[in-house]
């Protein structure tokens, strides 16, 4: 008799592997994206050259974009399935309920995830698709070019984040992303079975501090722009 499930990813543990695997891939992207963004502090030449390098390698750009789209789709699909099953598992709620030991981040993964998803859609329309209507600056980001005829990412980001509400939404979005990661970056090791008593507390701390570092790395840019440190 074969004991393996007919479909690994229909089992509870299998779906958690998917969540963890896709989550891990996106964490790597988030770190890489942050490193790229921080070139804003090196001036227009660095970030524009970097942007041009990414944009001009279509053979790399599109496979990466499509892979990210596939990864995020799997992450959302498994989150939806898991949530559906979790809701069904307790049809009648407790009259009184106290969450014991569970961190705020761990209890709000669904909501933080949904809001981050909405933020990502806006973020893509803002800086990737460059829809003029959503930047609230009245500038067409397509028209910004630097002296070397590359897309002027530096000026685009400065103009974009000079809008306080846009910056605020960005900071909130990144904040929720980091709340999500403060739990997710250590829980993914648990889901994949790579955690134990020796490394567990260390992984928990690393996830929390990692989330703080990622948050500071990302929000340093809009804050510097709002404080006119980057012009």
């Amino acid at each position: 008799m074969n004991h393996a499930p007919r479909n690994l990813f229909c089992s509870s543990v299998g779906k958690k592997y998917l969540m963890a695997g896709t989550g891990a891939a996106m964490v790597l992207f988030v770190i890489g994206h942050m490193a790229g963004n921080l070139q804003m502090f090196l001036g227009p030449e660095a970030i524009n050259r970097y942007g041009h390098f990414l944009q001009s390698n279509v053979e790399l750009l599109w496979p990466v974009r499509l892979s990210l789209l596939a990864i995020i789709s799997v992450h959302i699909w498994s989150a939806a399935k898991l949530t559906q099953e979790n809701r069904a598992a307790r049809p009648s709620a407790y009259e009184q309920w106290q969450p014991t030991a569970a961190s705020y981040a761990s209890r709000t993964m669904l909501m933080s995830g949904i809001i981050v998803g909405i933020f990502i859609v806006y973020h893509l329309l803002h800086y990737t698709v460059m829809v003029k209507a959503v930047n609230f600056a009245g500038t067409d980001f397509h028209s910004l070019t630097d002296p070397e005829h590359r897309h002027d990412i530096y000026r685009m980001v400065v103009i974009g984040f000079q809008q306080p509400l846009v910056s605020l939404f960005y900071i909130v979005g990144v904040g929720l992303l980091c709340l999500h990661l403060s739990h997710g970056m250590s829980a993914m090791f648990q889901s994949l079975g790579w955690k134990n008593r020796a490394c567990g507390p260390c992984l928990d701390r690393a996830a929390r501090w990692g989330a703080v570092v990622i948050f500071l790395g990302y929000v340093s840019i809009p804050i510097s722009i709002l404080l006119r440190l980057i012009q």
Partner: peptide, 17 residues
Amino acid sequence: VRVMDESGFGNCTVTGS
């Protein structure tokens, strides 16, 4: 794990409760 899933229990979110 198969019988656990079939019984209608939920999934683990690693909350530690």
